[in-house]
């Protein structure tokens, strides 16, 4: 490539054709020069209302129903309408294909920037970072969310929405204590989750026996569980994952309630690597977009004006306030500000 390339776009307004051209140009740089290893990408242009919707479902394209998501939506919406807070330029999802939402009101330069940032930078990070590889299943997540949403909706019909809400409220309150922090189980395969749930239900139905209901409850300590050491061995204690323990051991829960705990736990685990790599993930995406935008400029494919607009956005995002800046909450002077 030399500086004789044609401009990819001019002016501020974006078009789908221009986004196509920009995507192809970035794709070439990313693959031939940076040699990034990427999931296929699905880019969706969304409105600010849709962005608020996405916020409400923790950034995911679909989610089961729970009042807390609606509450979140109202809060975000109020802040946004009052102008107290802007919205993100993009949301990117650790899925295969990698889904990127970009905002309709972005200028063409911002679209170029966020595509380079999210569809290439974050995408490469999701696919290659060992925590994501070990703990998340990018190919299965969207289908799993669809299953979770349907499962919980079915539970609402069968058991009443109040009963479902009680379980979800309780499970959400334990979400932070619902992750395995150290690898021990096999890698996650979300596609098999639905099948596993069906098998569990079938097994129960096949083995249901009215007689068992008439046997009086046991009293006293079950044999072999009378010392702490034996109990610990039998119950796999200590256990840091409270949701996991409840799903497996809580004496009174119904199977559908266990499945809901499992769904909440799966989501907690899916998001856990994101919490552990916020800084690096943004750093990698920022390094990638900066590199790509400069390369596009060198190749003569974006205008001086576009480059200046990009640099303005870039420096606003990477700017580090001083340690005593009032924008930091008083208790956490060392935390980095996220854009």
């Amino acid at each position: 490539m030399t500086a004789t390339c044609e401009l990819l776009y001019s002016g501020a307004d974006w078009t789908f054709e221009a986004i196509d051209r920009v995507y192809a140009a970035i794709d070439e740089i990313a693959k031939s020069e940076l040699k990034l290893d990427l999931y296929p990408t699905q880019i969706e242009v969304i409105t600010s209302e849709q962005m608020l919707d996405a916020y409400a479902s923790i950034g995911m394209p679909l989610m089961y129903r729970h009042w807390s998501f609606g509450k979140r939506l109202l809060q975000d919406e109020a802040l946004y309408r009052r102008g107290a807070r802007g919205l993100a330029y993009e949301i990117v999802i650790n899925s295969n294909p990698c889904i990127c939402y970009i905002m309709e009101e972005n200028t063409m330069t911002m679209q170029t920037l966020v595509i380079a940032h999210a569809a290439f930078g974050h995408n490469h990070f999701f696919k290659n970072n060992h925590l994501f590889q070990q703990w998340t299943d990018a190919s299965g997540i969207i289908d799993y969310l669809a299953f979770a949403r349907r499962f919980i909706a079915d539970c609402e019909v069968q058991h009443g929405s109040a009963a479902v809400e009680r379980v979800l409220d309780a499970a959400h309150s334990l979400m932070g204590q619902g992750v395995h922090r150290y690898p021990k189980a096999r890698p996650l395969d979300l596609k098999r989750e639905r099948q596993r749930e069906l098998n569990r239900r079938r097994h129960e139905e096949e083995n249901y026996n009215e007689l068992w209901r008439t046997i009086p409850g046991q009293t006293g300590v079950p044999r072999g569980l009378d010392t702490l050491a034996k109990r610990r061995q039998a119950l796999n204690l200590p256990e840091e994952n409270l949701l996991y323990f409840l799903e497996k051991r809580a004496p009174k829960l119904q199977p559908w309630q266990r499945e809901i705990l499992r769904i909440v736990r799966m989501l907690a685990q899916y998001f856990y690597p994101q919490r552990q790599t916020k800084m690096m993930n943004e750093g990698a995406a920022t390094y990638t977009h900066y590199w790509i935008m400069n390369r596009l400029y060198e190749q003569g494919r974006i205008t001086d004006g576009a480059m200046l607009e990009f640099l303005h956005a870039h420096t606003s995002v990477v700017f580090q306030p001083e340690f005593d800046d009032p924008r930091y909450p008083a208790s956490t002077p060392m935390r980095s500000a996220s854009p």
């Binding site: 932070g176 204590q177 922090r181 006293g220 300590v221 079950p222 569980l225 009378d226 702490l228 109990r231 610990r232 119950l235 204690l237 200590p238 256990e239 840091e240 409270l242 323990f245 051991r249 856990y272 919490r275 552990q276």
Partner: peptide
């Protein structure tokens, strides 16, 4: 993150 989250574990169940 392991330090930011409190380290809470289930240690025993009083079966008696």
């Amino acid at each position: 993150v392991g330090r930011a989250d409190p380290d809470i574990q289930i240690v025993d169940v009083d079966l008696a």
